[in-house]
Simulated scan of single mutants.
Amino acid sequence: MTTAAPEPAIETVLLVDDDKVTNLMHGRLIKRTGLIGQIDVATDGVAALDYLQARSDAGDAWPELILLDINMPRMDGFEFLEHYAQLPEEVRCARTLIIMLSTSVLRADHERAEADPNVHAFVSKPVQSAHIEAFVTACQARRGP
């Protein structure tokens, strides 16, 4: 007798980081939790905005969780947030939870991330299983009943 795999708690996460090793580590960690169905990757803020636009154009739901690195080429995490905030309210998804990730120890980076209304939390890399579980719980709370 085979048992069907349980449905993931949330459908999609978008990893926005230019470091392939970090994306691989976070992807494996997310898969091990079994809490998230699909893992998509963008290597900088421009690619992330293009990804979100393509999903909107196709009528697809946005990811419920975005893990956003600060330091990336072309467009860093803070620049992404500036562009994200400019998107029309009807385009931005209120259910999308953005978590800012970094190895930065600069207090200014922490404060800037925490001051942004689109950022749910600032977490030092690497992300741990407990973080993923907490992020998923927060996504489910945003979804509502």
Rank of each mutant, 00 (worst) to 15 (best):
residue 13 V to Y: 01
residue 14 L to Q: 03
residue 14 L to N: 03
residue 14 L to E: 03
residue 15 L to Q: 00
residue 15 L to T: 00
residue 15 L to D: 01
residue 16 V to M: 00
residue 16 V to P: 00
residue 17 D to L: 05
residue 18 D to M: 06
residue 18 D to C: 05
residue 19 D to T: 09
residue 20 K to N: 13
residue 21 V to A: 14
residue 22 T to E: 04
residue 23 N to G: 07
residue 24 L to T: 06
residue 25 M to L: 15
residue 25 M to N: 13
residue 27 G to S: 13
residue 27 G to Q: 06
residue 27 G to H: 02
residue 27 G to N: 04
residue 27 G to R: 03
residue 28 R to T: 06
residue 28 R to S: 06
residue 28 R to W: 05
residue 28 R to L: 07
residue 30 I to M: 06
residue 30 I to E: 04
residue 30 I to T: 09
residue 30 I to N: 03
residue 31 K to D: 11
residue 31 K to N: 14
residue 32 R to W: 09
residue 32 R to Y: 10
residue 32 R to H: 13
residue 33 T to M: 09
residue 34 G to Y: 09
residue 34 G to Q: 08
residue 35 L to V: 14
residue 36 I to R: 05
residue 37 G to D: 02
residue 37 G to I: 02
residue 37 G to S: 05
residue 37 G to R: 04
residue 38 Q to Y: 07
residue 38 Q to F: 08
residue 39 I to A: 02
residue 39 I to R: 01
residue 39 I to W: 01
residue 41 V to S: 02
residue 42 A to M: 12
residue 42 A to Q: 11
residue 42 A to L: 13
residue 42 A to F: 11
residue 43 T to E: 05
residue 43 T to C: 03
residue 44 D to W: 05
residue 44 D to S: 12
residue 44 D to V: 08
residue 44 D to L: 11
residue 46 V to A: 12
residue 47 A to M: 14
residue 47 A to N: 13
residue 47 A to I: 07
residue 48 A to H: 01
residue 49 L to G: 08
residue 50 D to A: 14
residue 50 D to S: 14
residue 50 D to V: 12
residue 50 D to I: 10
residue 51 Y to F: 15
residue 51 Y to W: 13
residue 52 L to Y: 12
residue 52 L to D: 08
residue 52 L to P: 06
residue 52 L to S: 08
residue 52 L to H: 11
residue 52 L to G: 06
residue 53 Q to C: 08
residue 53 Q to P: 04
residue 54 A to V: 06
residue 55 R to Q: 11
residue 55 R to K: 11
residue 56 S to V: 12
residue 56 S to A: 15
residue 56 S to T: 15
residue 56 S to P: 03
residue 56 S to K: 15
residue 57 D to A: 14
residue 57 D to I: 07
residue 59 G to E: 03
residue 59 G to Q: 04
residue 59 G to A: 05
residue 60 D to W: 02
